[in-house]
Amino acid sequence: MVDYDAAVAAVQDPNADPILLAKIAYENPEFGANVAVNPRCYPGLKRWIAEFGDERARETLAQYGFTAEAFGGPVQDQEAPSQAAFEEPVATNPYGFTAEQALTTTDQMQIAQIAQYAPELRACIARNPNTYPALIEWLGQLGDPAINAALASRQ
């Protein structure tokens, strides 16, 4: 659970980690309105707060025109895409790294090397359950749709 003082500091920080803001909104609903107005609060988090946040948070978002209905209605459960739903990339790196390695290796050094030297395989690394958390976080910051879809399938 996020410490109260850390939550207070984070919601006031214009450079707060969006993942931390989401955790704060989930664990501390009383901070929902503060999270919602933070410049690092991303649209998906605003949608979640608009639907599941406390009354004050929903009212704050409504003042800015954000409601659950404005985002397409209530959040619906969706099936995660199956592994077959992903198109395997063609490995073009000169180091011989393959999609199979990126998907299955447990060697953390090799995972890091694939991420660095074979960018075409990053979506595969994002799907690998052995990929370490710091690399997952970095991959999420790249803004690549294929990587984002792969990360979403990890849920």
Rank of each mutant, 00 (worst) to 15 (best):
A112L: 06
W48D: 01
P74I: 12
I19G: 06
Q141K: 08
A50Y: 05
L21G: 14
T98R: 03
C124M: 03
Y42D: 06
I24V: 15
V8F: 04
I19T: 13
E100Q: 14
I111F: 01
P43I: 03
A25M: 06
T98C: 02
L61D: 04
N128H: 12
R47Y: 07
E27H: 15
A152Q: 02
G53V: 02
A123H: 02
G44P: 05
Q110R: 03
E55M: 04
P39A: 03
E27I: 12
E88N: 12
G44I: 04
A84W: 11
I111C: 02
D5W: 12
A50D: 01
A149N: 10
P119T: 09
N28W: 05
N128V: 07
T105Y: 04
D13C: 11
L103E: 03
V75A: 00
Q108E: 08
W138F: 06
L139V: 13
G44H: 04
T105A: 02
Q12G: 13
N148H: 09
A91D: 01
R40L: 03
E27F: 12
Q116N: 12
G73A: 03
V8W: 00
D3R: 12
R40H: 15
Q101N: 09
I111V: 15
K23W: 10
P14N: 13
A150W: 06
F71L: 01
A57K: 11
A84H: 14
A68M: 01
P18W: 00
I19D: 07
D13S: 13
E51F: 07
A152T: 00
A112I: 13
V35G: 10
T131P: 03
V37G: 05
V2H: 07
A6D: 07
D17T: 07
T105D: 00
T67E: 00
L139G: 12
T105L: 00
K46F: 08
P74G: 12
E87Q: 09
L21W: 14
D144V: 09
I49S: 04
T98Y: 01
L139Y: 10
A85K: 06
A99H: 11
A50T: 14
A112R: 09
C124K: 06
L121W: 06
A22P: 05
F86D: 06
W48R: 08
D54G: 15
A123R: 06
W138R: 13
T105Q: 01
D3N: 14
N38L: 02
P89M: 05
F86S: 08
L20Q: 13
P43F: 07
D54F: 00
G32M: 03
P14Y: 13
A91Q: 04
I24T: 13
E79K: 13
T60Q: 09
D13T: 15
G140P: 10
A16N: 11
T105F: 02
Q12C: 09
T98Q: 01
E55L: 01
A115W: 00
